[in-house]
Computed example of a mutant assay.
Amino acid sequence: MFLGILEYRAESAGRGLAPAAPRDTSRTCPRQACGHTGADNRITREEFRCARCGYAGHADRGGAVNAGIRAGLVLPVA
């Protein structure tokens, strides 16, 4: 029901809705060249550090980038 309302609101605003599966989005390196997934990447609730390439950042930001990539969006990673 929630997604139906959200989809309606998005369409009325001239936007589209692209749901993405949230599984492992905050454990996967958001760098497209790496993409390593592992529980050891998530240091704390907020801190992310890729065990393979060393990328470090906020875990929720990385999860949002990964969800956007899965939804077909292109999002830059600093």
Rank of each mutant, 00 (worst) to 15 (best):
F2C: 04
L3D: 07
L3C: 07
L3E: 14
G4C: 10
G4M: 08
I5M: 10
R9V: 07
A10V: 00
A10T: 02
E11D: 11
S12E: 14
S12D: 11
A13T: 06
A13W: 11
A13N: 13
G16M: 07
L17C: 11
P19V: 14
A20N: 13
R23Y: 12
D24T: 08
S26T: 15
R27V: 06
T28H: 03
Q32Y: 00
C34M: 06
C34T: 04
T37R: 01
T37H: 01
T37S: 04
A39D: 13
D40Y: 00
N41R: 02
N41A: 08
N41I: 06
R45Q: 15
R45Y: 10
E46H: 04
E46V: 00
E47K: 15
A51R: 06
A51D: 04
G54S: 07
G54N: 03
Y55W: 15
A56I: 03
H58V: 08
A59E: 03
A59P: 02
A59H: 03
R61H: 05
R61P: 02
G62N: 15
V65L: 03
N66Y: 09
N66Q: 12
N66T: 13
N66V: 06
G68R: 03
G68N: 00
G68H: 06
R70V: 08
R70Y: 09
A71R: 09
G72M: 00
V74D: 11
P76E: 15
P76H: 12
P76G: 09
